[in-house]
Design a protein around this nucleic acid. Structure first.
Length: 265
DNA sequence: ACTATCCCCTGACGGC
DNA sequence: TGCCGTCAGGGGATAG
């Protein structure tokens, strides 16, 4: 599922290819994609015919900065893919952005959870990006909430970009149990989580993200982080650390969490 | 203002 | 073989 490293990989691939091009037409036969504030026709009216000035990312969101101060946003949720000039039509193609120069960008999404919309003020909708937040802000945010650290890492209004895969990976590296409460951490533990977060996210970006099932880069290839993951979906396997045990799966906030009961405390 | 729970959607997979 | 239940999970809506 596209989290920060996957979305960053997508944006880095697409940025040099789409910036400067004009959106000739946004086509879609999936109204659900535009649920919420604007209908597809409203979005099309703002998007069609405009030049792309920039391509940005905040958390898991992709922003097309267009002429006239318009910001068109795509969220891929779990199964969304953004494909560059796909050679064949896909069964689950949900939207097609036709660009100048005979290029196309296709949003393919098996489960129709993805979303397109025009956003007015992106910074108001989400917390600071996980790779931008400072240690001080991170610490203050953790201290102000009384929830399991895993749920804290997943809350996009507090911290934008971390999803289920990387939350497990971060806590594995930090040596912290996912069900520990945020308000009880000491400064050293907060620092360990913060450091692990930066390390894991940067490493995953270098690997082009995690393909466990659905995620693909815009050229259709897979990300390389899954092979080197330490905790996510490793239930029953031996922990990679010398002092580790057997990876266990528990449920926190309706979501699976994988961790090593021996070295994560 | 806070947290907890349900729901959306499709495909993979296991049990019988 | 085929049917059914369960699981995957981000985030929005709703309930408490």
């Amino acid at each position: 599922m596209p989290e920060l490293p996957e979305v960053e990989t997508i944006v880095r691939f697409l940025r040099p290819r789409v910036v400067g091009k004009k959106i000739l037409k946004l086509a879609s036969d999936t109204p659900r994609l535009f649920r919420g504030h604007q209908s597809i026709s409203e979005v099309r009216r703002k998007v069609d015919g405009r030049k792309i000035l920039g391509l940005d990312r905040l958390g898991k969101n992709i922003f097309f900065r267009l002429e006239g101060g318009v910001c068109f946003s795509i969220h891929l949720m779990m199964t969304g893919r953004l494909l560059w000039n796909p050679p064949v039509k896909g069964v689950h193609d949900r939207a097609k952005i036709i660009l100048s120069g005979d290029h196309s960008l296709v949003l393919n999404d098996i489960r129709k959870f993805g979303r397109c919309r025009i956003v007015e003020n992106a910074k108001k909708l989400f917390g600071p990006d996980a790779l931008v937040i400072t240690l001080d802000k991170f610490q203050a945010a953790a201290a102000s909430r009384k929830i399991a650290v895993k749920n804290f890492l997943l809350d996009q209004r507090v911290l934008a970009g971390v999803g289920n895969i990387y939350a497990d990976e971060i806590l594995w590296y930090a040596g912290i149990r996912p069900d520990r409460r945020t308000e009880k951490f000491n400064p050293a533990e907060i620092k360990a989580i913060y450091g692990a977060m930066r390390k894991v996210l940067c490493c995953a970006i270098q690997k082009g993200g995690t393909t466990s099932r659905d995620y693909r880069k815009p050229d259709g290839s897979e990300g390389g982080y899954y092979k080197i993951r330490k905790a996510y979906q490793k239930t029953g396997e031996r922990c990679a650390r010398q002092d580790g045990g057997i990876i266990k799966r528990i449920v926190i906030g309706q979501r699976s969490a994988h961790y090593c009961p021996k070295h994560q405390r």
